[in-house]
Design a protein around this nucleic acid. Sequence first.
DNA 1: TTATTTTGTAAGTGTACACTTACGTTTTAA
DNA 2: TTAAAACGTAAGTGTACACTTACAAAATAA
Lengths: 198, 198
Amino acid sequence: MARPNLSNQRRAELVPVLARAFAELGYRRATTAALAERCGLRENQLYRLWPNKKAMFLASIDYLYEYTAEIWSRLLNEEDDVSPAERILNWEGEHRGETGLHRITFAGLNEADDPEVREALKRMYRKFHRFIIGQVKAHRETAGSADHPDATLTAWSVIALGMMTNITHELGLLNSKAQGKLFQEVGRLLLEGESSKS
Amino acid sequence: MARPNLSNQRRAELVPVLARAFAELGYRRATTAALAERCGLRENQLYRLWPNKKAMFLASIDYLYEYTAEIWSRLLNEEDDVSPAERILNWEGEHRGETGLHRITFAGLNEADDPEVREALKRMYRKFHRFIIGQVKAHRETAGSADHPDATLTAWSVIALGMMTNITHELGLLNSKAQGKLFQEVGRLLLEGESSKS
DNA sequence: TTATTTTGTAAGTGTACACTTACGTTTTAA
DNA sequence: TTAAAACGTAAGTGTACACTTACAAAATAA
């Protein structure tokens, strides 16, 4: 034996950097040279940690969920008078698209004919879906329960809204106020089966 | 003067072919060689019709709206006992993602740091939005009007649902029955402000 | 110390691909 | 008939970029 292998640790340190690069540049423009530079490494050093560019991208997809889940978990542990589900809705309505990390999903969807990329995206969406279902059910147990779509459909719809606000933010289609209104008002309708305007 | 210039006509004939190529292959893998082959042309012949690959892609984005609007318009002119808005919901719930043309938007979002691509996408979404707003308003004038989000938000939400069902179809996350249910049930909730389960 | 493995630096290599050039052939307005 | 423009065919060209090779320096277990 000689020097200890710190690859796992270094990968963990570098994934956020890679993810940000893919998010800012997209898959195509995130050249291996650019990735290496942002990591403060040479290209071949990157290739010692991941077998190819695609693997770096797959790791970034996984990171996107972990990063978001981390933020949501923090929100869930806060003391507040509204339900956790509503806290997440409010937070996302205000901050959606700020990090730009969602652009990784755009890049991923564009590469979705690749089986590995497709599986990574599926995993990611399923994890989000499961997380949100939990929040929807918890919310509905406490709040008065109107007639609304089942939790599965509701969760997909919330993800859809998230995607849409990402897009409108990306393209500058809605200002941040309208974006927040979209997310929160429709989100609440989905959660509670009735408009929050009342 | 000599031979008449048929460029406009040829462009119009070829755009659907290009759009399908971008949809099937994504921007990156849709090489100019592949595009030319599908058009039954040589590369330089394509370059006589469009200045570069990006222009071909922009034309494909525009085509995506025209194609969809064409289908929707046909649906609007049918005789039926449900409202036009509901007919579109039903149709999209059943056929969403079938053509695969929506993948053009994935490719576009991935290239959205390019100003021209971003503008093309904005145009496209705005046109869809306007179209849907019209349908939502028409529907609500005839149907009983519950308490629901305003037409603008509703229209964005419907687009969001469309996007989501495209994604779930693309990734194989939902079977077509669940996909239809998502689109129709939630769509109706958004349209009418109450769940259709009742 | 020393053998072994990781880390750093520098310079490639092969190829895919957007875009071009050159040139011959067909069509049509005058 | 003819000149000009459109059309067809073939063969490039330059370069960007994923990935590799070679080798020296540094670190650590024995």
